[in-house]
Computed example of a mutant assay.
Amino acid sequence: MEISVTSIVFSFVFAVILASAWSFLDWIWLKPKKLEMLLRQQGFSGNSYKLLHGKNSFIWLGPAPSINITDPKLIREIMLRYEIFQKPKRNPLNRLVFSGMLVYEGEQWFRVRKIANPAFHLDKLKVNKILHEALRLYPPGALFTRETIKESKLGDIIMPPGVFISMPIILVHQDEEYWGNAMEFNPERFSQGVSKASKTD
Rank of each mutant, 00 (worst) to 15 (best):
F14Y: 05
S195L: 10
D175G: 03
L80M: 10
K34S: 12
N117C: 00
E36N: 09
S166Q: 12
P140V: 03
G100K: 11
I59K: 10
E133Y: 01
I158G: 00
K50S: 02
S166I: 07
L80R: 12
K150T: 02
K50M: 02
F85M: 13
M167L: 11
G162W: 11
Q41P: 02
K55I: 01
I67Q: 02
E83Q: 13
T200W: 08
G180S: 10
G193I: 14
L135T: 05
G180P: 05
L18V: 04
F185H: 05
R113I: 09
P187N: 04
A19E: 13
K33W: 09
M37A: 14
L96W: 06
H53I: 15
H173C: 02
I75N: 00
A134H: 02
G106K: 06
I158E: 13
A134R: 03
I8G: 00
E107V: 07
L131Y: 02
L61S: 07
W179K: 04
L93F: 06
Q41M: 05
I157E: 03
V97D: 00
E77F: 04
P160Q: 14
M79T: 06
M159F: 12
Q42N: 14
Y178S: 00
Q41C: 00
P187A: 01
F44S: 10
S191H: 00
F190Y: 15
F58H: 15
V5N: 09
W22Q: 06
A21D: 05
I78C: 01
D175R: 03
S198C: 03
W29T: 15
G100C: 07
T70P: 00
V163P: 01
P92Q: 11
K34Y: 15
S66G: 05
R136N: 05
R81C: 04
L122M: 14
L131H: 02
H132R: 15
S66I: 05
W22A: 11
K153W: 06
P63A: 13
S99L: 10
G62A: 11
D201M: 12
A116I: 08
G193H: 14
V163N: 07
P140A: 01
L125W: 09
E151T: 14
L143Y: 09
S48F: 05
E105R: 09
L171H: 13
P161S: 15
L171F: 11
